[in-house]
Amino acid sequence: MKRKTLWIAAGLAALAVGVTGLVLAQKKYTIVTVVKITGINWFNRMEEGVKEYAKETGNNAYQTGPAQADAAQQLKLIQDLVAKKPDAIAVVPFDPAVLEPVLKQALERGIKVITHEADNQVNTLYDIEAFDNVAFGARLNERLAKCMGYSGKWTVFVGSLGSKTHNQWADGGIANAKKYSGMQLVDAKQETADDAEKAYQKAKEILKKYPDIKGFQGSASTDVAGIGRAIEEAGLNDKVCVFGTSLPSIAGKYIETGAVDGIGFWDPKDAGIVMNKVAQMVLEGKKITDGMNLGVKGYEKVSVTKGPGQGFIIRGNAFVDVDKSNLKDYNF
C-alpha cells in the first residue's frame, strides 16, 4: 500500500469520523506483532492468532521477532520497525526496561503501542494480561482441592522465592485453600530453580516426610514434570493430585499417565488476537473500558486498570484448563 494513499485515507477517515460520525468500513491498518523469539511453539501458536485476525479483518497484520532470545536483538528489530512507521505495534517484551526508549520514540512518532506480559511497561497504551495472577493461582488450587476431595496435606512449589508471578500464583493458591478447613498446607514454597530435577528431588523429600501427602501445586513450567516423575516412580499416580502452571509440551507425558492431573496456562493464540483487536480499536479512536467484551474467549469481561505510565492494563480471565480430556487440543 502506498503511504501517500494511506495518509489521505487516514486523513479522510478522521475527518469522516469527526465530522459525520460515520465509520469507514474495512479500513486497512498495518499492525506488527513483535514476539520475544520466533520458532518456538508458544509464539508459533500466537502467530496462528495473528494470522486468524488478519484473515478475518483484512488488515495487514503479521508477526515477527528475533531468531534468538535476546533483548538487544528485539530492540534492534523494533528500532527498524519504528523507522518504517506501521500503524501499530504489539510487543511481547523480552525485557521491558530495555524497550522503554524505543517504545517512547514510537509513541512520539504516532505509532500505537500495545504490549503483552509487561504490566510494568511505562511507554505503552494498553498492556494486555491474560488474567490476574492471584486469581489464576486460586483457580489452579481450586482444581487441586476438588481432586483432593477438599481435604488432606498439600504443598506448593515456586521456581524461586524472588519470582513475582510465581509468588502471586502460590499466594492465590494458598488463599484459596484456606476456604477449606480440611486442606492442610505443609512446607510451602519450596524453590526448584526452574529445574525439573530439583522439583523431583524436593517432591521425593516431601513424599518421604509426609507419606500421606495428597496434593502438589507447581509454579515453574518444569515443576509438575519433576513432581510427576517422583509420583510416577513411587507408584502414587492415583493417590496424589498434581496441578500446576505448565504447558502440554512439558507436562503432557505425565498427564497421559495420570501422574499429573491437570495444568493451567493461557492460550497465546487468543492473546495474539486480543492484542491486534485492541490495537485496531485504538487506531479507530475507541477506548477500552472496564467490563468491556473484546469478543475473544476469556476476554469477554475484561478489567481495565491504570498502568505505571499513561497507559492502562487490560486483564482477562483467559485461563486454559488442560487435563487428560483436552490435552490433544494444544500443541505447544
Partner: peptide
Amino acid sequence: LNQLANPFDLVGT
C-alpha cells in the same frame, strides 16, 4: 534421569 532436555538446566549450580 530427568526425562527432559532443558537447555536452561544446570548453569548456576
